[in-house]
Amino acid sequence: MIDAALQRFIELAATLGLHYDFLLSGTEVRSWLAGMGTTLLLVALAIPLSLAAGIAFAAALTSGRPWLALPVRAYVELTRNTPTLVQLMFAFFALNMLLSRALGGAAHNPFTPFFWVVAVTGLHVAAFHAEALRGGIEAVPAPLVEAAQATGFSSLEILRFVTLPLALRTALPALVNNLVNLVKLTTIGSAIAVGEVTYASIMIWTQRDNVLELMIGILLFFGLINLTVSRIGRLVERRLAVPGYGA
């Protein structure tokens, strides 16, 4: 049944000049699917990391404590204004190397290339989240914060129960945008041989010279992930919408 449909698709694509016969080769399909799986795993780990770190950074930026805000501000500016790929290279070739040496050789270093991709892309996008959330926190009217103070909330409780929930709502479109970028950023994992979908595709097309066919597949795959991310974003936006606040 599936085989027949596949056969039909390959024939149809062939009439357009596209050669999808590699889909009949079990090993190549398996490695391609494994690549997609790795990409999904990267995304699934990096998204929560970016959100958690973004919230922490935003809290530091708005804490009013210079010793906390300044280093985070420096990190945010550095991250936003340098290429993620260079950050990854630096993390993998410099930091990872130092770590290996400190731990007594690469064999003792538990940090894999996969880890570095999640960490670098997640923390990179966290800087963008932090800026969006900071804007949202600062947009909360000062009297509202004062009302919470007068009730006896500490500054951390005010952040958790009042300013952050409101900031999440105003920043949500920007956050979703950042997450779409995060999904796309995971492709740089191929630079350090993390077997995500781009890397898996390179492995296939060096054998078969079917770049265009694989490209269409990759673009559809990322289109689908990002469609899902934006859909979920809009769903959350609707769920969180409150009458009389924001747009």
């Binding site: 009297p143 509202l144 004062e146 009302a147 919470a148 103070q149 007068a150 009730t151 006896g152 909330f153 500490s154 129960f161 009042v162 929930p165 409101l166 709502r169 969180l240 409150v242 009389g244 606040y245």
Partner: peptide
């Protein structure tokens, strides 16, 4: 912390209501 302890014992109602909109 001391001021917070005090504020728990004093209620305030503001001109602009300042209810939490969410």
């Amino acid at each position: 912390a001391e001021r917070i302890a005090l504020r728990k014992r004093i209620g305030v109602v503001f001109q602009q209501y300042n209810l939490f909109p969410h």
